[in-house]
Design a protein around this nucleic acid. Structure first.
Lengths: 379, 379
DNA sequence: AGGCGTTTTGCATCCGGATGCAAGAACGTT
DNA sequence: AACGTTCTTGCATCCGGATGCAAAACGCCT
C-alpha cells in the first residue's frame, strides 16, 4: 500500500513497467467547465448556462448547437456550483433508523426511485438505533438538502421547528409526533388495528393477545389503540398483552414465549417481522399449530409474509399511495414554505393461512408473493 | 393506484388540515454566513473559514472565540460552498440494484455508518433492475461525489475507465469485472463454493445439485466454479444443475421444483434468499425433509438464515472486513489517483440444521442471530 | 530599545454557474 | 425607411468558503 506513494526506481525485482511520464500522470484532469465550452464555441458563459436551463430565454438554434457541442465534448454542468447559486441542491435527505425490518429497505428503494423520477437524489442518513434524529439534522442542514423525509426515528419537536424555520419541507413518514406541526404521511394504523379486532371477532377467537413493538413509537401506540378500542366495543376483553421493547424478530419470539402461559388463541403483532418471530416460537418452540391453536396477524405486508412457510395474515400498508403523497407534497412545496398536512391513508387487510382461510375469499390465486401491483384497488 | 396522486379529502380515512398563518410562513430566513459571523466578531471572513479548518494556522484563542460565537449564533459552514472551493464533496455514491436480497440492506446500513464515522455521507442510487450502472455514473459525476461504491450491479469497462479518468476512486463491492482495472472488494466466492463441496462430501451426499443466481454475475460464476471444481477433484459428479435467472426467493422456489425430478440429496444455492425459497419448495410443496432427504446450503448468512424455521447452513460473508477494506481504501486514496487493488476476503462456513448437525461443533451456542463482531480475525 | 524569526490576520481572488439588466439583433408595422 | 416590439446575447455580479500571499502582530534575544 505504501509503494504507490513513492515508487522507488532503484528497487529491483519489481517488474513494474513504468514509462513514468512524470508530468502526465499527475494530470488532475479537471473537468471541462461552462467557460471552457463557451470559449470553444465563441459565446458567453451565460449562454451555456441558459442552454441547460429549460426556463431561460435562448434561441432554439443556439441551444441545439450548445447541447451538441456539450455532448461531443463531454461537458456536464457542475451540480455543486449550481446548488450554490440557486440554493437548491435537488437532494432530499432520508433518515432511517434500522434496516432490520424488511419493510424499510423496500420502502427506501421505492422512495429513492420515485424521487429520482422527479429529478431528486437521496442522501441517506442512519440515526443511531434508539436515538432520535436530532443529531443528524444539523448535518442535513449543512448539506443544504431541499427536504427531509424522516422514516423510522423520532424527532424532537424543538428540532422540528428548527428545521421548519429553514423554509424547507419535512415529512414524517409512517410516524407522527403529536406536539409538532410537521407534515405526516402514514397508514391509518388505528383503523388497521380495528380491522384486526374485527377479524378475530369474526373468527370467534376469545383469548386474544397483543404483542407490541417499540413502545415509544406512534405506529405501535396507534395500532394497539385501534385494536383494543375495537375489542372493547365488541365486548371482547384483551386477554394477554405484552409491552414491546422493540420491533424485531427476536422480540416477537421472546414476547410470544412470555405470553404463552396465558394460552391465547389469537395474537396480533404490531408488525410482520415480530409476527414471524412469534410464529416460529409458537410452532418450533411451543409446538402449537397456526391457525388451529393460535391465529396470527401482523402489520406491513413485507414480502416474507407471503412465503409458504408463513402465509401470514397482515395489514398491508399502502406504500404506493404513501410514496405518491410524499413525492407530490415535496414537489409542490419545495419552492415556498409549506403548511403542514396530515395524510392518513387506509391500509388493506390481507388474509392468509395464519388466520385460516375464511369464507370471504374462496379464490386464493396469489400463490407466490405479490409481484407487480395488486389487482384489488385499495381506496 | 391513481387515488394517491390527488388525495381526495372526501375519501374517508384521508384527512388534510392546514392552520396556515399566511404572513408568517413566507419569511425566507436566509441562514447566517461566514461573513455575517465575521462582521459580528469584527474579524475577517477568512478567520471564520480557518477556524473550521483543522489544518489552518489560527491562534487557538481566536478559534475558540469563533467557535463559541458560531455555536451561540447557530452558524454552520455551508457544505456546498465548501465543496465548490475544495472540489471535495465528502459524499460517496453507492449504487445498488435491488433490496430484495436482505444481504444488501444490512450491508448498506453498515457501510453508511462506517462512512459516516470518517465524515463521509452517502448518496444513494438505484440502478434499474437488470441494467448496468452506466446510466447512473454521469449523474454521480455531476454530483461531484468523491468516490463510488458499486454493489450489486455490473458496470461496463468503458464506463469504468471514464470514471477512473476523473481521478476518483471506485470500488466494486462483492463483484468483479474481469477486463477492468477497478478496485474490488469481495468475499472469496471460489473458496466458499469449494468449502460447500467439501461439506457435501463429508456428509456423504451423492446426488448433488446446484441452483444458480443471476447467470451474468461474477458472484454466481465464482461460487459455482469453486463448487464444481472441488466436486470434480473429489470425484463427485454434479448431479443436477439449474442455470439461474436471478437471485431471489421466487427463483429458488421455482428452480427447486425444476430440478426435483432428478432426486438430489444435497443442493447448494448461490445465495441464502434463493436457498430459503428452495427450502420452502422442498418442504411445503415436495414434502421432503431437510436435511434428512435433502441437505441445503446457501451463501451470505443473512439474518433469516438463522431463524428456527430454516436454520440454514451457509457461507457467511466477512462483511465487517469487507467494509473495513472498503473504507480504508477510500480514505487512503481519496486524494491522489489510486492504483487498483483486489481484495478477496475469506468467508466462513456456518453449519446449521439444514445440513444436519455435524460432529465438528458440538456446542452450538449461537442461538440468536449474530450480534457484534465476528471473533475470527480475517487479517 | 532594536532586530529578527514566527505566528496570526486580512486582502484579494478563485471555485463553476445563475441571473438581472441593458445593449444588440431580428421582425413587424405604417 | 423610420420606429416600436420582442428575442437574444453579453456583461457584471453574486452564491459562501478556501487559500496564497503579504502585511501586521507577537515573542525572544542581545
Amino acid at each position: 500500500m505504501a509503494d504507490a506513494t513513492a515508487p522507488d526506481p532503484s528497487v529491483a525485482g519489481a517488474s513494474v513497467k513504468e514509462p513514468r511520464p512524470i508530468a502526465e500522470q499527475t494530470k488532475p484532469h479537471r473537468p471541462m467547465t461552462s467557460r471552457d465550452l463557451a470559449r470553444a464555441l465563441g459565446v458567453s458563459q451565460s449562454m451555456i448556462s441558459r442552454a441547460f436551463s429549460s426556463q431561460a430565454s435562448i434561441a432554439p438554434a443556439m441551444r441545439m448547437q450548445i447541447m451538441d457541442a456539450a455532448a461531443a465534448a463531454g461537458y456536464r454542468p457542475n451540480v455543486v456550483a449550481r446548488s450554490l447559486s440557486t440554493r437548491r441542491s435537488n437532494i432530499v435527505g432520508i433518515v432511517m433508523a434500522g434496516m432490520t425490518n424488511p419493510f424499510y429497505p423496500e420502502l427506501l428503494e421505492r422512495l429513492t426511485r420515485a424521487l429520482q423520477e422527479v429529478g431528486l437524489q437521496t442522501l441517506l442518513f442512519h440515526a443511531p438505533p434508539g436515538e432520535d434524529v436530532d443529531g443528524q439534522l444539523p448535518l442535513l442542514m449543512q448539506y443544504q438538502v431541499d427536504a427531509v423525509i424522516i422514516a423510522s426515528a423520532p424527532i424532537s419537536s424543538g428540532m422540528a421547528q428548527t428545521w421548519l424555520a429553514t423554509g424547507r419541507p419535512a415529512i414524517l413518514f409512517n410516524r407522527s409526533v403529536p406536539g409538532t406541526d410537521v407534515t405526516t404521511v402514514a397508514c391509518d394504523n388505528v383503523a388497521g388495528g380495528a380491522a384486526v379486532a374485527d377479524l378475530f371477532a369474526r373468527l370467534g377467537r376469545k383469548r386474544i393477545g397483543f404483542v407490541g413493538g417499540r413502545a415509544d413509537t406512534s405506529t405501535n401506540a396507534d395500532r394497539e389503540r385501534g385494536f383494543t378500542d375495537r375489542l372493547n366495543a365488541l365486548g371482547l376483553p384483551l386477554h394477554a398483552h405484552t409491552a414491546g421493547t422493540d420491533y424485531g424478530y427476536e422480540q416477537g419470539y421472546a414476547a410470544t414465549l412470555r405470553i404463552a402461559p396465558s394460552k391465547p388463541d389469537a395474537i396480533f403483532y404490531a408488525n410482520d417481522i415480530t409476527a414471524l418471530g412469534g410464529m416460529d416460537a409458537l410452532r418450533q418452540e411451543l409446538r402449537l399449530r397456526v391457525p388451529e391453536d393460535v391465529a396470527v396477524v401482523g402489520f406491513d405486508d413485507i414480502p416474507m409474509a407471503a412465503w409458504p412457510a408463513y402465509r401470514l395474515t397482515t395489514l398491508r400498508q399502502p406504500v404506493e399511495a404513501m410514496i405518491a403523497a410524499t413525492v407530490s407534497y415535496l414537489t409542490a412545496h419545495m419552492e415556498s414554505a409549506a403548511p403542514p398536512e396530515i395524510h392518513v391513508l387506509p391500509g388493506q387487510l390481507i388474509e392468509r393461512a395464519s388466520t385460516g382461510l375464511t369464507p370471504p375469499r374462496t379464490n386464493r390465486r396469489r400463490a407466490s408473493s405479490r409481484s407487480g401491483h395488486d389487482p384489488s384497488s385499495p381506496a
